[in-house]
Design a protein around this nucleic acid. Sequence first.
DNA 1: TAGTGGCTTAGATGTCGATA
DNA 2: TATCGACATCTAAGCCACTA
Length: 341
Amino acid sequence: MQPSFFDLDDRYKKLNERDALIGLDKLIDWEGFRETLQRCREKARKSAAGRKGFDVVLMFKALVLQDLYNLSDEELEFQIRDRYSFCRFLGLTPEDRVPDAKTIWLFREQLTEKGLIKALFEDFEWQLEEKGFKAKKGQIVDASLVSAPIQRNSREENTQIKRGEIPQRFEANPHVKRQKDVEARWTEKNGQKHDGYKDHLVIDNEYKLIRNFEVTSAEVHDSQVFFELLSENTSKEVWADSAYRSEENEWMLKAGGYRSQVHRKGYRNRPLNKRAQQSNRRKSRIRARVEPVFGSMENEMGGLFLRVIGLARAKTKIGLMNLVYNLKRCVSLCRRGLSAA
DNA sequence: TAGTGGCTTAGATGTCGATA
DNA sequence: TATCGACATCTAAGCCACTA
């Protein structure tokens, strides 16, 4: 359910809207994304005729606003028309045309089709390095569940979906099929059941910026997405909770030249001794630095919740959430004068 | 002015929360 | 538990701005 405008105003206050948008506008090099964004519009054309599309950087900034305030496409269109701060951020005047909600949807769809979200994330990684925010002091790996709308399927349909099959009712009716997410999966965490996807990410220990991410369906275990996340860092230390602890992962960390700071795991017949418990507590002080990253997404950006259907769209949407977190974090670090440290 | 392609409109279908 | 309204995603088709 979308938040009411009262909720929205509350979130604006939390983010200090005016300052947040001015900071994003002034401190981020939006033109740095243009080359990648132009690939959205690459297709075989018979001529240069036809209506011109909205500027790709403007559309991208609109998607950033959408994730910053967790707005639906319709609500984003309304807010761009309604709020001068949004218009100014997008470089529009009140007389200018504003992209329609469906145009916004279509642009996000084009990003998904071309699979550009990782490239955009990497574009910003270059900007971070230029600003002096090179990944330092080791990396911390973690994952968080991102809920998707719960599907109202029969038990038999859910069993078929779990087997990777498409239920006959969906096949028979294309309208039903396109509204059904057959790629989201159920999983259980802390005794609670969740349906959706998982955002696996790695942050650096110095700046708490997301350095890499992967999106999978929720049932994929954290430890299955580990090495592909590790990125360049000045230190070889890697922190992670006990879910990532396995003989294979430890061997691979060693082979890759990393120093494991992964929590030790206790077992029913083999509990952790005092020394191992102390070691875990010490590691926790560093590893816990990843929690505010998910906390920021949950509390300030409106929550880890998706309305899109399918893994490909979820990858784009979650990727955008991660990128928007980094944009926000970068502005905060610049303001504190921590760049070029 | 016809052809082209992005944008908008209308409609189908879904979930969620309130209510009886 | 069923029903209803509100609000969401997504597609198809037609509109409209632009080019040759």
